[in-house]
Design a protein around this nucleic acid. Structure first.
Lengths: 207, 207
DNA sequence: GGTAGATACTCCGTTTCGGAGTATGTCTAT
DNA sequence: ATAGACATACTCCGAAACGGAGTATCTACC
């Protein structure tokens, strides 16, 4: 705590939040973080490292367990951890960040051919469908009582609603975009869509 | 080209794409990348470094310019660069990645108080409004002819439509979520929303 | 002609990435 | 019962990215 401890990140607090629900082993944390982690992408190695950082900050405690020949460490939140988690929840949120490889390809699609553009749009649609499927799995588990935290269903409803909205909107966009592009002779000669741009500027979608 | 050259990333190809439109200085690249770069977040220092990497790969060429006392380098795409850009456009897209700090706060909001949850929802709404405003600026520039690439308006229509869709969906979610939460006594005692979860599983949004 | 603030970058210590490596667990065929 | 294959559960480390401090030039205004 005193000397060199790394700065806590959103991942740190996400892990701390999971520990706030119940104690977890590193592997469980990695699984859960991946599952709920549609909202925050990060490398697995970082997730595995966070519990140690939390202990160094005094926000979590570690207990050794033996599970056959395998040594495990089970981490729990400390009272200081709970306080710090509440403090974080009251911090202003940082701006969302994205990495949409497919949309970057759409953005420069006039330097390639039409097939590639349609492929990028299709990639967005496929991702939307995977996103919807993921949301369906989670909501299904909650309705059948397969979930470890039934009393969190109202919170899960909020977050999964956003996921479903994102998936639905992306599908609508992909359908519309595909139709547009199919009517173009090629990628660098589309119609100048003055009315579309006006509409978009006013915050209205074309679908 | 022969020895140690760093692997090209989506940022590299984004920069290469900009050079595919016309030659740029590093500063111009950074500006343009930020502007179009809603779809790919990355640090400024990385963007400034990419042109050098592209030259090392033989995909861009550098020309020194004097602009008063300030030395500038203007980068242009090479024929090999154009080929490589087209190859990239035909690559399958990598999965989108997000970092939604506010949604992480929503996800663990039952460990904090109601005010913080409403704050996180409000942060999402505020971001949606900034996103819409950004899209409006770009589309407005295109309709008034203030844009350097009027013949790319059809492509810009595609990408900005997604941005506007994202902004609209986020606003709708925020309105709905705020209403839900205002009816809760506190963050850890919401109604068990069985019908909501069923609806979400079927891919239908509650708004 | 001085200086305050904006512009246009570079530099570098810290953090993250991501894939290879390691060790244990489990299943299946013989 | 046991060898081999595949899955599970992590650790390690070199390369890349981050982001903020630092530097130099330009521009506007007094």
């Amino acid at each position: 705590m005193a000397g060199r401890t790394k700065k806590l990140t959103t991942v740190s607090y996400g892990i701390l939040g999971l520990l706030g629900l119940r104690p977890h082993t590193p592997y469980e944390l990695a699984q859960q973080f991946r599952r709920s982690g549609t909202f925050w992408a990060s490398a697995e190695s970082v997730v595995y490292n966070e519990p140690k950082a939390l202990v160094a900050h005094g926000l979590a405690s570690a207990a050794a367990e033996a599970d056959g020949g395998r040594r495990r460490t089970r981490y729990s939140i400390t009272p200081a951890g709970r306080r710090e988690l509440r403090r974080w929840l009251s911090d202003p949120a940082v701006e969302p960040q994205f990495q949409f490889d497919a949309m970057m390809k759409v953005l420069f699609s006039d330097l390639g051919d039409k097939e590639d553009l349609l492929g990028a749009i299709e990639a967005m649609r496929a991702w939307a469908e995977r996103t919807q499927a993921g949301a369906a799995t989670i909501t299904h588990d909650y309705t059948t009582g397969d979930e470890p935290y039934p009393d969190r269903a109202h919170i899960v409803g909020l977050t999964q609603a956003y996921r479903v909205g994102l998936a639905q909107m992306t599908r609508q966009w992909a359908d519309w975009a595909e139709q547009q592009v199919r009517n173009w002779p090629d990628t660098h000669n589309g119609p100048a869509p003055a009315d579309l741009l006006t509409r978009l500027g006013a915050g209205r979608t074309p679908w």
